[in-house]
């Protein structure tokens, strides 16, 4: 494993920890999109179908379990926890799941490396992960005022994606036959979706002011 990949996984892990910390200690999920969190739970559930059939490494299995458990518990907190769920911006978080799920599923049925259930689900999870942040970005745009933890959560997710691109470039030059167009293109699309957010995040950081997105 190269340094970019490890750093990518660690920022991904940190994003989840920041979010759980916000929910668990402040008992608030204000500014967090339940739609995005549900899509992530679906992403992990469909991508890690191999968790009990193909052993890759202990690291791999443990990380998969962490991402599955954390994504489903975040959804549980936001839907079921009697205090946390009250802070959910339900009226602002109106993005429709199906608008993202259906096109990704159709695309995965036609574009995949092998037409098997596991492989189509894996490809679907890549496409869906690429766009799963959209409801969150829409919610940020609507609420405009973003608290520090929410800003850090989205920033860490974006950093994870950027580091994965560096990981692919590194692997392409160091490993033979490492060509994965589906992964790369969907990963690139996903990272580009954060570009706008990053621009405002760095500006607010540089000018040392509270992060605020334009209307």
């Amino acid at each position: 494993m190269n340094i970019f990949r490890l750093a990518g996984d660690m920022t991904h892990l940190m994003s989840v920890i920041v979010l759980l910390l916000k929910i668990h200690t402040i008992k608030s999920c204000a500014g967090i999109s339940l739609k995005t969190q549900e899509l992530y739970a679906l992403v992990f559930a469909t991508r890690y179908l191999d968790i009990f059939t193909d052993f890759i490494s202990l690291y791999n299995t443990i990380m998969k379990l962490i991402f599955l458990a954390s994504s489903f518990s975040i959804v549980w907190y936001m839907r079921q926890h009697k205090i946390v769920r009250r802070s959910y911006d339900k009226d602002q978080d109106t993005f429709r799941h199906l608008f993202l799920i259906l096109p990704c599923l159709l695309l995965a049925l036609f574009i995949n490396e092998k037409f098997t259930f596991k492989e189509v689900m894996w490809t679907f999870s890549l496409f869906l992960e690429a766009v799963a942040i959209l409801p969150q970005l829409v919610l940020l745009q609507r609420t405009r005022n973003i608290d520090n933890l929410t800003g850090q959560y989205v920033f860490l997710l974006g950093a994870y994606r950027a580091l994965y691109i560096l990981n692919w470039i590194y692997r392409y030059f160091t490993e033979p036959h490492y060509v994965h167009w589906i992964t790369w293109i969907s990963g690139l699309v996903q990272t580009l979706l954060y570009a706008d957010f990053f621009y405002y995040y760095f500006n607010s950081w540089k000018n040392n002011v509270k992060l605020q997105l334009p209307a």
């Binding site: 890759i56 490494s57 791999n60 991402f67 092998k114 894996w122 036959h177 589906i182």
Partner: peptide, 10 residues
């Protein structure tokens, strides 16, 4: 094939 390389990623 997709079953090698990239499948060790998360």
């Amino acid at each position: 094939s997709a079953s090698t390389g990239v499948k060790d990623e998360l």
